[in-house]
């Protein structure tokens, strides 16, 4: 059965088309002002990538903050449900799923059957989401990709006192004035964010294996800090930002837990 999952996130719309658990195509479009146009764009991109006509897709499930905005969806699923379905399909041995997106962070505990047991969400504060690293990259006048890479070259842990992204921005500027090395500031930024995510994950109980998904999983600096904080390795799929959309597509096909 060919199905599609549409994840309407705070920053991007992601679409996955799958058949029997295999990904046929994917599409990603920046969520602009016109949500409908962004959704259509991402769907068209995924269809093109899969080389399929739209009538071949039998069922469509939506997820994400804007899941109610998908007009043609057969059903919609919470982000937590879609995250778990996608991550557990990729890593059946995972018991903890951490999803760090642009404006939200989530930690999900699943049992051995892949069912969601508990979860915690940070949606109120930029300090526990991708928006934090974006703001810090701006303060450091570095492209976001560079911030992650630079962080890995740091050998010194510099503490960050501020929690709020707004205050942290001023702190980063003070660190620059105090002639702190850029790579050490970059690491401080990722350490601070990792601390926030770890403490959220600890609220639901961290059990290995841990899968890390969401766009921020592409940031090697954050991954490094998180692994240090969790004192264990995390599993990261090839396209971490698509896992939730994949989960929705699996659920549409009745393949999710």
């Amino acid at each position: 059965m060919i199905t599609a999952g549409i994840d309407v996130g705070a920053k991007n719309v992601k679409v996955i088309i799958q058949e029997d658990g295999k990904i046929l195509g994917k599409g990603l479009v920046l969520a602009g002002l016109d949500t409908q146009a962004s959704i259509k764009g991402a769907v068209d991109a995924a269809l093109k990538d899969a080389d399929l006509a739209s009538d071949k897709v039998e069922k469509v499930f939506a997820t994400g903050a804007g899941r109610k905005d998908v007009p043609d969806a057969d059903d919609s699923y919470t982000e937590v449900g879609a995250d778990a379905a996608g991550a557990i399909h990729l890593y059946p041995q995972a018991r903890t799923v951490i999803d760090v997106g642009a404006e939200e962070g989530r930690a999900i505990r699943v049992d051995e059957r892949g069912k969601v047991v508990d979860f915690a969400i940070n949606e109120r504060c930029a300090a526990g989401a991708g928006a934090f690293t974006e703001a810090m990259a701006r303060a450091l006048e570095l492209p976001l990709e560079e911030l992650g890479r630079l962080s890995l070259t740091s050998t010194k842990a510099v503490p960050m006192n501020a929690q709020c992204a707004v205050f942290a921005e001023s702190e980063v500027v003070s660190l620059i004035h105090a002639k702190t090395e850029k790579q050490d500031i970059a690491r401080a930024v990722h350490d601070a964010m990792a601390t926030r995510i770890t403490s959220m994950a600890r609220r639901v109980g961290v059990k290995p294996d841990i899968a890390l998904i969401g766009g921020v999983a592409r940031n090697p600096g954050f991954v490094d800090s998180l692994q240090r904080d969790l004192e264990t390795e995390v599993l990261i799929p090839e396209d971490p930002e698509y896992v939730s959309a994949f989960g929705a597509a699996l659920l549409a096909a009745g393949l999710g837990k």
Partner: peptide, 18 residues
């Protein structure tokens, strides 16, 4: 809807564009 200044800022930008 957001209390966070960072999110409120992006929300405000969207309202201005609207």
């Amino acid at each position: 809807s957001s209390t966070c200044v960072v999110f409120a800022k992006s929300e405000a930008s969207a309202l201005l564009r609207e």
